Amino acid sequence: MLCVSLAAAAVGLSGAALADSHGADDHAHDADKALVILTSDSLQTQGMAMILSNAMQQQGTELQILLCDAAGDLAVEGYSSEGINTPPGHPMEQVTPEGIMQMLMGEGASVDVCAIYLPNSDHGEDDLREGVGVAAPGPMAEMMRDPKIPVYSF
């Protein structure tokens, strides 16, 4: 896991250096950001959303992940999904969406549950994994409206 994290950092740093070396515009120093909204209860969809988020993070993207509906369960401490098989050549044979999510958080990704997740579940804020917050609608709407921040929904 540490090797994957170090490789992610190296790829992210080399991507930033490449952008600067090619005369990127004045926004080159602004962080490349993305908002990933995950609502699906499908294990493969959750896994692929996290795998693609990991690839974006390795390429230098600052991630904000919003977990809503059934995907909010990934944020609950102690929640454990089944492992999913990875494609050939992946450093790990099986992964879980919440495992990748925690790795992303360790590399700086912000993860929140939707504002309505907790009031509509059997969980409270104390049940969330360390580092997971509760999204406020206003700031989330600002990110969604910002044309410089792509929004990916799964």
Rank of each mutant, 00 (worst) to 15 (best):
M48R: 02
M50L: 14
M50C: 07
I51P: 02
L52F: 13
N54K: 15
N54R: 09
Q57P: 01
T61M: 13
T61L: 11
E62N: 12
L63Q: 06
I65M: 10
D69E: 15
D69L: 11
A70M: 14
A71V: 10
G72I: 07
G72T: 10
G72S: 07
D73A: 15
E77K: 03
G78I: 02
Y79K: 13
Y79S: 13
S80N: 12
S81A: 06
E82S: 08
G83K: 02
P87E: 05
P88A: 10
P88L: 06
H90Q: 07
H90N: 11
H90S: 09
P91I: 02
P91M: 04
M92T: 04
Q94K: 13
V95A: 01
P97V: 03
E98Y: 01
E98P: 01
G99Y: 00
Q102N: 11
M103N: 05
M105G: 06
V111T: 10
V111L: 08
D112N: 01
V113L: 11
L118M: 04
L118H: 02
P119C: 05
P119M: 07
S121Q: 13
G124S: 11
D127H: 04
D127N: 09
D127E: 08
L128S: 10
R129F: 03
R129M: 10
R129V: 08
E130L: 04
E130M: 03
G131V: 11
V132D: 03
V132L: 06
G133V: 05
A135D: 12
A135V: 05
P137Q: 15
G138M: 14
A141V: 11
E142M: 07
P147N: 07
I149P: 03
P150M: 12
